[in-house]
Simulated assay, not measured.
Amino acid sequence: MPAQRADARRNYARILAVAEEEVAARGADASLEQIARTAGVGSATVRRHFPTRRALLEAVFRERIESLAARARELAEADDVRAALLDWLGALTVYSATVQGLATALLRDGELDPEHANPCVNTLAEAGEPLLRRAERAGAVAPGVTPVDLVTLIAGIALTTQHHPDPATEATRLLHLTVAGISPRG
């Protein structure tokens, strides 16, 4: 019935909007019950649209993840591939460090799981692969570094700096400290 479908779409949009606000305020541990109450729906409705917390977090971050993926694809053609890779990693680091819950959304059961990576990780890894491989061929990245390695690194930095007074600056500083390990040419 079209009316139910329209109601379902409205509920989805309302739940997602409330979830974005709650995750921004409380991080990945935002209460699903509070999200349901604020959205004016039952918790079963939230779970119908988002069967797991991870599904809700992925939906909350989808647009920005897509933007970061588009940036990686754009930078893959840059003349200075090392600078392009570091530009992308910097953008990913700052965003991950300043948006509560994103680092957690990149994790699976507390650790990044390369064999069962979630859609956020898959999107970033697929988009970053050509940029990373090009940087590797140019000698700008140590052989064997994978896109999942880079997302793991960024998630770790973001988690480490989440309670810092200036998480973006601290995360960027830590990324620069690590660059020598993934990109030996300075």
Rank of each mutant, 00 (worst) to 15 (best):
V99Y: 13
A127Y: 10
A97R: 10
G156Y: 04
A117C: 07
V145N: 01
A103T: 11
N122W: 04
G139W: 06
E129N: 12
G128N: 06
A91P: 14
G110H: 11
N118V: 04
A125W: 09
A103E: 13
A127M: 09
R134A: 12
A117K: 05
A91F: 07
A138G: 04
N118Q: 03
E111Y: 09
S96M: 12
I154M: 10
A103N: 09
L112I: 14
S96C: 10
P114I: 08
A103W: 12
T98Y: 02
S96F: 11
G128Q: 06
P147I: 13
L132K: 01
D109E: 15
L92N: 06
T146D: 09
G90S: 14
L89E: 11
N118M: 06
L112M: 15
A140I: 03
L102V: 05
G101S: 03
V145F: 09
W88H: 11
V148Q: 10
T123K: 02
N122H: 00
P130K: 02
P143V: 11
A155D: 11
E115P: 02
R134G: 05
A140T: 04
R134N: 01
C120H: 02
A135P: 02
L107D: 00
L112H: 06
I157D: 09
L106R: 11
A105M: 09
V141W: 04
N118H: 04
E115F: 12
T98C: 14
C120S: 10
E129T: 15
N122F: 00
D149F: 13
V141N: 07
T152C: 12
G90K: 13
A97S: 15
N118C: 06
G128R: 06
L132I: 05
G90I: 10
E115Q: 13
D149M: 13
R108N: 15
A138F: 02
A117L: 00
L112E: 11
A140V: 01
V151N: 04
L92F: 08
P147H: 14
V94F: 00
V99S: 14
A97W: 06
V121S: 07
I157Q: 09
T123Y: 03
C120T: 04
E136C: 10
R133D: 03
R108M: 14
T93C: 10
L92E: 12
H116A: 05
R134Y: 03
P143Y: 07
E129V: 10
A135M: 00
P114G: 06
E126R: 05
A142I: 05
L102G: 00
L131W: 01
E126M: 01
T152W: 15
G101P: 01
S96K: 00
A142Y: 02
A142P: 02
T152S: 14
E111T: 15
L89T: 13
R133L: 05
H116V: 01
L92A: 12
P143F: 08
V141D: 01
A117M: 03
A140K: 07
A117E: 02
G156F: 05
T104V: 12
I157T: 09
V99W: 15
G139M: 01
L112F: 05
A103D: 09
G144H: 10
G101N: 12
R133V: 06
V151K: 09
V141A: 08
G110F: 03
